[in-house]
Amino acid sequence: MTPAIYALLFVLLAPVFGGLLAGIDRIVSARMQGRVGPPLLQPFYDVGKLLQKRTRQINPIAEPLLIAHLGYMAATGALLLGGTDLIFTVFVYALAALLLVLAAGSANSPFSFAGAERELVVLLASEPFFILMMVAVCKVTAASTFGGVLASSQLVAVQLPGVLLAFVVVATIKLRKSPFDISISHHPHQELVSGLTSDMSGRLLAYVELAHWYESALLCAFMVLLFNWSVPLGLLAFAVAYALEVLVDNATSRIKWQLVLRSTWAATLLLCGGNLLALFVMGR
């Protein structure tokens, strides 16, 4: 199959993957809390309902911005699997994330604004890692595309243990899990904790949710990059990491944004930076 077909498949199937993952997540979380939890397809019901519901907008910019957020999130994955340069993909990913911040901030209301600013902080916290991760992957495999990395004979994760650990830490932000879910959370929350979506309703909220499904699939693809020997291996690694995230999510409480920034930057600098330094010094 050509990369273009992979890209198309990502656009079509990533929401299914992300939605099912969210459904499993909710059931597993419920079981951890001693509950039965919702049906597996609950996330799809929720999005279906949001699309049927009336939408009330505060600022008409929000909708195009959110559509663009969704579009760029899908495009990031499509570009990644479609064989675009890995580092360029991260730039598009950052643009996608930024659009969500702008959509929330455009409401100009206290909780939305706080949510937007906090999301900007977590974007700042996570962005260096993704650039460094892609650089490290390119460095190890001497490839610059997804297909190239998969074709490489090196098992990337063995060369990049620090990057792998840092990935688990930083992915907590992108997966909206405690202790780093300071702008929006998987759990029903309000006001400061879920400020990002406080003034979004109906289909706007559905866009955010759909984009998040794409994002989960994208993170899974990133994990496949680290376990490049086979796709099932990468999926397995992602499943293990995700289970760990759910456990941590249920076992920890949210921390202040200062600590989010400090801890993720420390992890990025020490684990990822150290790993990268070792690679450069050893001249690989």
């Binding site: 509950r35 039965v36 609950q42 929720d46 029903p188 879920s194």
Partner: peptide, 19 residues
Amino acid sequence: TPLYDVERFGVVNTGNPKH
């Protein structure tokens, strides 16, 4: 709570009128 667990029916306690 686990005893009644309304999330089984998809009920979510949102805390935001817009949702």
